[in-house]
């Protein structure tokens, strides 16, 4: 339950930064917080009190955490990083034209 709470708070914070802040870089940060909240939740939720799912040589099989969500989260992180990089690039490009990264001053984003 604690995990869910923290997830909701982080998710809402990220969404708030994305929606309400006018600085485009801050928006991207918000987007990343939002994604990170989901990753965090997945890892925390799949924790059943076991170990990381890596066998150790000479040791017997003990209680493992689920490896699948961890692998999926790894994929998600990489994808999130790539999209963030693309977005930041576009913001750099837009800055060349407008000399600002403030959303309120860039009329074209609204329509």
């Amino acid at each position: 339950m604690r995990n869910n709470f923290i997830f909701i708070i982080l998710f809402m914070l990220g969404l708030y930064a994305l929606i309400m802040k006018t600085n485009l870089i801050k928006n991207v940060i918000g987007l990343n917080i939002m994604e990170a909240s989901i990753f965090f939740w997945v890892i925390a939720f799949s924790d059943v009190g076991g170990e990381v799912a890596i066998h150790k040589m000479g040791e017997e099989f003990s209680k493992f955490n689920d490896p699948v969500p961890q692998a999926l989260t790894l994929t998600g992180i990489v994808i999130g990083a790539s999209t963030a990089a693309l977005l930041l690039t576009l913001i750099i490009e837009l800055n060349q034209f407008t000399d600002t990264i403030d959303r309120d001053e860039i009329e074209g984003l609204n329509n």
Binding site: L15, L18, I19, M20, R103, D104, L109, N110, N111
Partner: peptide, 13 residues
């Protein structure tokens, strides 16, 4: 409907 980006994105939540 097209007020500004904040209001547009607000539709998501």
């Amino acid at each position: 409907f097209y007020q500004d980006l904040t209001i547009q994105l607000l539709w998501i939540p």
